[in-house]
């Protein structure tokens, strides 16, 4: 079962509701998905795992809508990204996109700036706004192409490129100032 392709496993899960096939997919992608969510939440382990679990449950119930236009991993990341933003919107009555971004930032810093967390990566990513942070994480850590990032974040490729460029500039400054360069 472990050697089967994603397409084969998805077909089994879709056509026959085969849970074992879906279990293989969960095991295959749990690590990159949880890492991605960890970087969105500023390193909050518990929250990331809860969101990752919600992502997989959603993926199971919506598996029929997977059209093979992107890879299964990209599709999962898109669900995870939406699950994360749905969670943010559920926290408070949020009216505008600015409110959402403010809330994402506050959640990120609440955890990343906590004295108990010693991770320098979350300090560095904390210099960026939420969109820049997601673009940088997907591009440099998860090795996603610009087209895939646009697909995950549902943004035009041009917007992804400008977020990447701004994020890169801020990150470079931060890294050089802190002795990494």
């Amino acid at each position: 079962m472990a050697e089967l392709s994603d397409q084969m496993l998805i077909a089994r899960a879709t056509v026959f509701g085969n849970r074992r096939a879906f279990d293989t997919l969960v095991r295959r992608y749990q690590s990159p998905l949880r890492r991605f969510l960890m970087n969105l939440t500023g390193g909050d382990n518990t929250l990331s795992d809860d969101l990752a679990q919600d992502t997989f449950i959603k993926a199971w119930t919506q598996l029929a809508s997977f059209k093979n236009k992107s890879s299964f991993e990209t599709w999962l990341f898109r669900i995870a990204y939406n699950v994360f933003y749905d969670y943010i919107r559920s926290l408070k009555e949020i009216q505008s996109m600015e409110d959402v971004e403010r809330e994402v930032d506050s959640l990120y810093h609440e955890y990343a700036d906590d004295g108990s967390v010693k991770s320098d990566i979350h300090q560095a990513l904390g210099m960026l706004n939420p969109n820049e942070r997601t673009c940088i994480t997907l591009f440099y850590m998860e090795d996603r192409q610009i087209k895939e990032i646009a697909d995950i974040m549902q943004l035009p490729e041009g917007t992804v490129k400008s977020n990447l460029s701004r994020g890169k500039e801020k990150m470079t400054t931060y890294l050089k100032q802190n002795g990494y360069g």
Partner: peptide, 11 residues
């Protein structure tokens, strides 16, 4: 610089 920093922290 960024790639090296990020990849070193990818676990």
């Amino acid at each position: 610089l960024i790639r090296q920093f990020m990849q070193a922290r990818r676990e």
